[in-house]
Design a protein around this nucleic acid. Structure first.
Lengths: 242, 242
DNA sequence: CGATCCATTGAGAATATTCAATGGTCGTGG
DNA sequence: CCACGACCATTGAATATTCTCAATGGATCG
């Protein structure tokens, strides 16, 4: 199960869209009660795990019997085809939740992009909690809906956008995800290959697109894992925030 | 809101994956109670509509206040970008349900590919029904999950597959969706342009891919809206049922 | 300090797109 | 019933984009 919780948080449009149903944001001023808050009720049956950069957290096909909250670090969710192609379904950051899909087996493999700390709850406990509380069920439905809308937005990106636009879309999404301040560097813990497999491009094409954006003055690249979004307006226009 | 109910039905893998949670299939021998069955309880507040081929059923941004069941015909769900690009998010066939997303506004436009008859229920009534019944809430969560898994599979298709593979994936999915008999013609009511916009290709590339599949003996094309899947094994191999 | 891994850039090849022309089908109206 | 017109599908040729292969550069970690 999966779907980073982030979906509703990152895109302003999605945020507005869900306003009537309650924000997913973790900033308490905006939303008094989040899915995250509800999980605290079953803190007693949670467990904490650490993973090293590169480690596999769980693999496709394993029983999907836990809900996970990322405490620190970044995870990538991958699907591998028999002939070795890889698709990075999503990146999951600190604060995000995965594991709410109604799905007996893990639909993908989760790998640690950086060192990762996460807290996990038995799915059975979460289900019991949900059974007892209508509000949390609504949150879960919102969470799944947000994930689906996010996936559909990404379908648009892969189906309709060229390489440069895809990279711009990715950067805008990452930037929104962390509520980036103007001029502040965006952290990109994942490799260029990860980004490429996320966007349906090759590593070289991602590099060239980034170089082109830099040449155009839209971004600066202090080092390969940090990046400054110099012209957010132009990036958004290129990303076609539909 | 959205997501054709079909998701869990079409892919054997997805079907197996959800077995533990109950199949979505409409063949009663497999599943005694479906989301569809539950809706009968509120048949009293349903209404029936007809649309002509090409008509818009609802548009992106309108209030999403009804759940719809397609009785006959085919719908395409589209997202338009400001500069006119179109992405066909999904096709919805007879028996499929849309409108379960937790989303105040329609995230896409629904257009009739053929003449369409549908029955719709007020979202508020569906929500009341769900509030009173834990089983239906589970079904809805399964429905949303299936939609999300389907969307993620399509992300793999758009991100990792070449034109010929994408078309093969599309045909396999359409074939599975209707439980096609060997040798039976597959109905493709949508235009080549619709298929192209669904697969992130151009109309010409779709035509060329179909011609190539025909040359390879995998399919036959009696006419442009009917098609025979002659070598389902080879098609599945090309589609990489991951 | 060296080795490895990752990122970047270049050049040539492959794939898909664009532009263009032809052919076929369907529906309308004579 | 046939003819016309509109629209859609198909194919070809040239172009553009992205990929593949290759080499170099830079950073990180023993």
């Amino acid at each position: 199960m999966p779907v980073s919780l982030s979906a509703a948080r990152h895109e302003p449009a999605a945020r507005a869209r869900f306003a009537a149903l309650g924000s997913f944001s973790r900033t308490d001023s905006e939303a008094p009660v989040t899915l995250n808050d509800y999980l605290r009720a079953i803190h007693g049956c949670s467990s904490r795990q650490h993973y090293r950069r590169g480690e596999t957290i769980f693999s496709e096909g394993e029983p999907a019997d836990r809900v996970c909250k990322v405490i620190s670090g970044t995870i990538r969710l991958c699907r591998y085809s028999p002939d070795g192609r890889r698709h990075v379904v999503d990146f999951v950051n600190a604060g995000d939740l995965i594991g709410f899909l109604e799905c007996a087996d893990q639909p993908w493999t989760a790998e640690a992009v950086t060192d990762v700390t996460l807290v996990s709850y038995p799915r059975a406990s979460v289900d019991r909690l949900a059974a007892s509380n209508a509000a949390i069920r609504t949150r879960i439905a919102c969470h799944l809906s947000a994930g689906l809308l996010e996936a559909q937005h990404r379908l648009f990106v892969l189906g309709c956008q060229c390489a440069k636009e895809r990279v711009a879309s990715f950067l805008v999404r990452q930037g929104d995800r962390v509520d980036l301040m103007a001029g502040e560097a965006l952290d990109l813990p994942m490799s260029r290959q990860d980004i490429a497999d996320h966007l349906g491009l090759t590593i070289e094409t991602v590099c060239r697109a980034l170089s082109a954006l830099r040449s155009g003055g839209l971004i600066a690249i202090p080092n390969s894992h940090e990046l400054i979004l110099k012209d957010m307006g132009a990036l958004r226009a290129m990303a076609i925030e539909s």
